[in-house]
């Protein structure tokens, strides 16, 4: 494992270089709402102390709306047109461990029975520059789902804040190593001890529950009374799923562009919507909001575990932090009457 040193100023310079070379550059916005494309070094936000953005970074590998193909009527024939291939090289700056870890978790789903070429191409083209986190609030629980403020899972390059606006840069994957090699001027070589990482000012989030115990309980309590109270005040919006770095459900719809053309699109969908499981007959197997809330918890802490051996949650706390009615998933899981 090789170590390097860089600074805030150098990272801004890197943004300028990447912009010249037509890379897609992604950074958190200044308001802390979401990640967005930037083109200028001054718009770069790399802040270990920042609260996780309200919306996660997943839309850059799993867009909220992605055309799969276009169709056009030509005389009596229907012509299918592929969307433009995803080619542009992308770099995601300042992903917190709870954001970066989402990529390898979603990767399992998108490569299970069908290889999702759109997702895979985007992941392949993206260099994730992760960053150790120095933020904790009552909603954070990364430590409960096997992560930590310094987890490198999902990062290609990992930054650890050091003294005097320096960063200790760790090369995590071969892709990260190639990136560092390509932009040598930005990363100076160092030995591990050259720059001391600054110690965290915030305590790591406390461990709120044990995922194995939760899984054991979920295995046998589909019909538990607990659910009726747990999901009672949920209003059924999809905010929790859409801000989540790993929720990946989607719907496929056809949309018209004009009378003779259209497109097939893959859009985000969510299990908290009543329509999500409603059958054409009118029957809905998840009829009430508590039924749907049980699905949310079970998918994260049981079904994904059953199928892929991973928890479908990075403990970022976004769903709870943003919930208009104060539903806190970590609290609900921790309060399971085990």
């Amino acid at each position: 494992m090789n170590y390097y040193i860089t600074t805030d100023e150098k990272l801004r310079e890197l943004v300028r270089t990447l912009a010249e070379q037509k890379w897609n550059i992604i950074s958190a916005d200044k308001q802390g709402t979401r990640f967005m494309y930037i083109n200028d070094g001054k718009d770069l936000t790399v802040d270990a102390k920042a609260r996780p953005t309200k919306v996660s970074a997943k839309q850059f590998v799993f867009p909220k709306s992605e055309p799969l193909f276009f169709f056009k009527k030509e005389h009596d024939d229907l012509k299918l047109i592929d969307p433009q291939a995803v080619q542009q090289k992308t770099v995601l700056f300042g992903a917190k461990p709870c954001d970066a870890a989402g990529l390898p978790i979603m990767e399992k789903l998108f490569n299970w029975d069908y290889k999702d070429e759109f997702f895979n191409k985007r992941v392949e083209n993206t260099v994730v520059i992760g960053m150790a986190c120095d933020y904790t609030d009552e909603y954070c629980f990364c430590t409960s789902v096997g992560l930590a403020p310094d987890s490198e899972k999902g990062s290609d390059v990992f930054l650890v804040p050091g003294a005097d606006n320096h960063y200790v840069v760790k090369e995590v994957t071969p892709k990260g190593a190639a990136f560092i090699a390509e932009f040598k001027a930005i990363f100076s070589e160092a030995a591990q001890g050259d720059i001391k990482a600054v110690s965290r000012t915030q305590p790591a989030p406390e461990k709120k529950f044990n995922v194995d115990e939760v899984k054991n309980w979920l295995d046998g309590h589909f019909e538990s009374e607990y659910w009726s109270k747990a999901g009672e005040t949920c209003l059924g919006c999809a905010q929790c799923a859409f801000v989540c770095p790993v929720c990946h459900c989607f719907d496929i719809v056809d949309e018209n562009c004009a009378a003779d053309c259209g497109r097939r699109v893959k859009n985000w969908d969510a299990c908290q919507f009543g329509l999500f499981t409603k059958h054409a007959s009118g029957h809905n197997p998840r009829e009430t909001q508590p039924d749907r809330y049980r699905q949310r918890v079970s998918h994260k802490f049981k079904y994904y575990q059953d199928k892929f051996g991973e928890t479908l949650c990075t403990g970022c706390g976004r769903c709870s932090r943003n919930c208009a009615v104060g539903i806190d998933i970590a609290e609900i899981v921790a309060n399971i009457p085990m």
Binding site: Q59, L235, G236, C237, A238, Q239, F242, A270, A324
Partner: peptide, 12 residues
């Protein structure tokens, strides 16, 4: 452009 269509506005 920022809208993610979660319909939280509607549900709340």
């Amino acid at each position: 452009e920022k809208c993610v269509k979660c319909y939280a506005c509607r549900q709340a």
